[in-house]
Design a protein around this nucleic acid. Structure first.
Lengths: 197, 197
DNA sequence: TTTCCAAATGAACACCCGTTCAGTAACGCT
DNA sequence: AGCGTTACTGAACGGGTGTTCATTTGGAAA
């Protein structure tokens, strides 16, 4: 037996990445074997190597493409000029982008230590780029007097930790809509950095 | 060869847990082998089973004892009555407890998915207990008019995510002292839930 | 000094790991 | 219809996995 009916590279490739993402998010990178991924795709383990160089590259590409999509998506947004509005917009954007991507978020935040040193540095660079976008908002708001924070870098991390934490508990089937989550966090984020009135 | 000079159960036991904690925090539970842990302790893999039932129990006990210590430590604190002061106190306590325990925090937040269903439920119960302590503060503050949040449970999670995120970037050898971190976060946490003035 | 036992060893168990590769079947193209 | 390419199989590679257990040792108690 060799190639099955109607199977093509353009179909199997993405299926490999999808299965890997779901399994890694669920069990962790080290706990998932190539044979498990292959079984999920309906293929033998050896066939995976038509689509990936090795297991490490697979993980890196999953994380890289997540960060690329994130940066591209934010880059495509048209940003309000006013710092407070821009912060509100960032909060909404972050939630809207991340909530439907639970598996990507899980993998991207939990599997950093399984990246090789080189790959880690590249992912970290992309993450830094995204953080810089938020930090620029905070700096503008500080300059305009709208915000008051002691350290813009720390505030950036605090806000992102707060927002990204949502993926750990939010249940799309639960009683709270995504819009409500956005409104609630918009308020809390804004208050956390706003200058006292 | 069997027992080495001067080695005793009361010494080896904790050394096993210490080595396991450090290695698991660094590489992840699934990526660390019993032989690696044993090598770190200076012992053969079989000897570990004098101190642990199996690998799963080892992980569970590491996480359980972290949560037990956390709850005991918070229980031993004397809490201010005023909600705002109690929230400030919580922020300081959380940072002081968690910052010197990087490995425990890493393991406790990243390896939940490697727990068996039973063990997961028990750890989750303990975590919930801790979250309830914060939620009680927020509820009191809402009742007194000091805080204004839409959903006390969500605010609880937001605050804890914000605070626990510190362990991901804080460098004890860096320029920022732990006291400064406490002050900065005390302010941000308070603002994030405070009623507008 | 002898006895006894806790605390280790080291080999073995059955199995799983990532990765490679010769062989083969199904497809698109001529 | 025949050919070449693509996509896959299945076996094999060397090595690692968690766990068990008979055996051996060091040290304390008698």
């Amino acid at each position: 037996m060799a190639r099955k009916q109607g199977s093509h590279s353009e179909i199997t490739g993405p299926r490999v990445r999808d299965a890997a993402l779901r399994l890694i998010a669920q069990h962790g990178f080290a706990a998932v074997s190539m044979r498990q991924i292959a079984a999920e795709v309906g293929v033998q383990a050896g066939a995976l190597y038509n689509y990936i160089a090795d297991k490490q590259s697979l993980l890196f590409e999953l994380m890289k493409s997540h960060m690329d999509e994130l940066l591209a998506a934010y880059g495509a947004e048209s940003l309000p000029h006013d710092p407070t509005e821009r912060l509100d917009h960032f909060t909404r954007f972050h939630i809207r982008f991340h909530l439907p991507r639970r598996d990507q978020v899980f993998v991207s935040y939990m599997e950093l230590r399984n990246l090789s040193a080189d790959n880690f540095a590249r992912i970290e660079g992309l993450r830094r780029q995204y953080e810089n976008a938020l930090e620029a908002i905070l700096r503008d708001g500080i300059a305009s007097g709208a915000f008051r924070v002691t350290d813009s870098r720390i505030a950036t991390r605090a806000v992102i930790a707060m927002l990204t934490g949502i993926t750990n508990w939010y249940d799309p089937a639960g009683p709270i809509t995504q819009d409500q989550v956005e409104d609630i966090y918009k308020e809390m984020v804004r208050n956390s950095v706003a200058a006292a009135i």
